[in-house]
Amino acid sequence: MSDAILRIENVHTDIAQYHILHGVDLQVPRGAVTMLLGRNGVGKTTTLRTIIGHWPAREGRIVFDGDDITALKTSERARAGIGYVPEDMGIFSDLTVEENMVLAAASGPLDTGRRDRIFEAFPPLRTFWRSPAGTLSGGQKQMLSIARAMAEERRLFLIDEPTKGLAPAIVSTMAGALRDLKRQGASILLVEQNFAVAKALGDFAAVMDDGRIVWAGEMEQLATDAGLQERLMGLSMEAG
């Protein structure tokens, strides 16, 4: 793939005594949504955390927009233009929504234009702007988590299961916001268990098993081939 914003080459990652990633090779195309799929426990979250630098790669390379970032600190990777939205949301419950956003805008004040785009994507955040983040619903907290990653200019977003446990109406809002991010030129690597969301959002997909990428291609090919889904993930998700 000639225009990949992110390349992961033969990456191995250990957590304590456990060897989790076994030579991951993955390319994330620029300006597209790439779904990272697979059963629980196969290494998807570890892959995102290795890319952002929370866990170091023992072997292999991570190349972001042409630069080798394998040895960079997490803060340096963030400054390079990578935003990370963890599954546990990573918000400060005792601070207001506004204060959470101010902290996320590390390079300076959150400008009005960016704030308004965030409000357009997630209207509840305008309503609860000065409310403690801990009082938000689960869906609203997830909106804030993604909004925090949008507080600065990012070229790549790593997002871990943004729709997990959310009501269908909130899932729809989340999907719409992620489409808007893509329209603004962002590239997205998205871990998602909801296959209906994956089909609706994904341009490309990569399937993991046992710490490796076992298939990669266009999302449409995976979404329309029940036999391929069953072979790769153990069950047909055609009805999902």
Score class of each variant (00 low, 15 high):
84 Y>P: 05
164 K>M: 11
137 S>I: 07
12 H>A: 02
227 G>Q: 13
209 D>P: 04
166 L>C: 00
139 G>W: 01
160 D>N: 12
13 T>A: 07
166 L>S: 02
147 A>V: 02
148 R>S: 00
195 F>R: 06
222 L>P: 13
123 P>Y: 00
185 G>T: 01
71 A>S: 14
159 I>E: 08
14 D>R: 15
197 V>I: 14
90 G>Y: 03
125 L>F: 02
212 R>F: 00
141 K>C: 09
104 A>S: 07
238 E>K: 13
237 M>Q: 14
102 V>Y: 08
111 D>Q: 10
205 A>R: 09
215 W>S: 05
1 M>G: 10
213 I>H: 03
173 T>E: 14
120 E>P: 06
228 L>S: 04
68 D>V: 12
7 R>I: 05
46 T>D: 14
129 W>M: 07
98 E>F: 05
79 R>I: 13
236 S>P: 06
20 I>E: 05
132 P>F: 14
105 A>Y: 11
118 I>E: 02
101 M>W: 12
101 M>E: 01
91 I>F: 00
7 R>A: 03
134 G>H: 02
18 Y>G: 14
44 K>R: 11
92 F>M: 06
133 A>V: 00
184 Q>F: 07
13 T>K: 07
6 L>K: 01
91 I>R: 03
36 L>W: 01
163 T>V: 04
132 P>K: 08
232 L>G: 12
15 I>P: 08
232 L>W: 01
219 M>P: 08
51 I>A: 08
16 A>N: 11
130 R>T: 09
229 Q>G: 08
99 E>G: 06
30 R>M: 05
10 N>T: 13
71 A>C: 04
194 N>L: 04
86 P>G: 05
61 R>T: 04
201 L>F: 07
208 M>N: 10
192 E>F: 13
92 F>H: 09
204 F>V: 11
81 G>I: 05
57 A>I: 05
42 V>K: 03
13 T>S: 10
103 L>K: 04
84 Y>T: 01
222 L>K: 03
